[in-house]
């Protein structure tokens, strides 16, 4: 083969591999999408062509499944978690980014480390405590433990954004006559706003997809969407068409949010180890 042919051959091989990888990645997602629009009969056959129906989406919101309640719980819990976490994380991130604190490294590593603690370890004492104070199966309890998951990511991610704001700008504002709090309000917050939104979305996704805490702490009133998946069982087995419809309701909003902030996903998830 000539050099040119060799190159063309390699390009073809690479394109083939890329297409294959993309298929492997998308087929399971597409499969769920298809099943969600299949009727009860069609879902038990390997059909590619079928008469699409929206009835599954209607069914999951009716008795006995009531997915609407779970959707409401998930939205409320994830939103409240973010609304509490982001301001607190922003304050801390600013301080970590701009000042030298006593024990700064210890604090930062500890915050990082808490993210790596297995969730089962954290949930055991919480379960006992919530049982004693009556917080089991409440959204408030769920919000509280979700903060454990979200806070480290939020602090590290926002710290990364604030590190990227040039110090010059803040110093200029100080010389121009601002106090530190005015600098934070007038300069840092507007400049960090896109970053704060990104961190908020990232944390929302984490809280939305959280499974173990909700599995253990909720039973009826505060059940979230991922736990709701367990509902779609009948005597004859799993109700795949309904499971898939519920699955779409869980994943589609996250797909949209994730695509919005995809550039920052890596930085957020690796907490600054990869920039």
């Amino acid at each position: 083969m000539t050099g040119k042919q060799k190159k063309a051959f390699w390009n073809a091989v690479q394109t083939g591999l890329i297409v294959m990888a993309t298929l492997i990645m998308l087929v399971p997602i597409a499969w769920i999408f298809m099943a969600a629009f299949k009727s009860h009969v069609d879902v038990y056959q390997l059909k590619l062509f079928f008469r699409p129906t929206l009835e599954n989406f209607a069914l999951v919101f009716r008795e006995p499944y009531n997915l609407g309640e779970k959707l409401w719980n998930s939205t409320l819990v994830a939103l409240a978690t973010v609304v509490i976490a982001i301001p607190i994380a922003t304050m801390a991130a600013y301080s970590f980014s701009r000042f030298r604190l006593r024990g700064e490294t210890v604090m930062l590593v500890t915050i990082l480390a808490t993210q790596f603690v297995p969730a089962v370890v954290i949930i055991l004492p919480f379960f006992v405590m919530f049982r004693d104070v009556g917080l089991l199966d409440t959204r408030l309890g769920l919000i509280l433990v979700n903060l454990a998951i979200v806070m480290p990511f939020a602090i590290w991610m926002i710290k990364g954004f604030i590190d990227g704001i040039p110090l010059d700008t803040e110093e200029a504002a100080m010389v121009d006559g601002s106090s530190r709090l005015q600098v934070i309000r007038n300069i840092v917050l507007p400049m960090a706003a896109p970053g704060l939104l990104t961190a908020g979305i990232f944390c929302f996704i984490l809280a939305w997809n959280e499974f173990l805490f909700a599995l253990i702490l909720t039973s009826k009133d505060a059940v979230t969407l991922p736990i709701g998946l367990a509902l779609f069982k009948a005597e004859e087995g799993d109700l795949w068409n309904l499971l898939s419809a519920a699955g779409i309701i869980i994943m589609l909003p996250m797909f949209i949010l994730a695509l919005m902030i995809r550039k920052f996903f890596v930085q957020g998830m690796t907490m600054g180890a990869v920039r």
């Binding site: 040039p166 010059d168 700008t169 803040e170 110093e171 200029a172 504002a173 100080m174 010389v175 121009d176 006559g177 601002s178 106090s179 300069i187 400049m191």
Partner: peptide, 15 residues
Amino acid sequence: KDRDVAMVFQNYGLY
């Protein structure tokens, strides 16, 4: 802010 000075920065420090 209380020193009554004005400063021009190397990277300008614009908002």
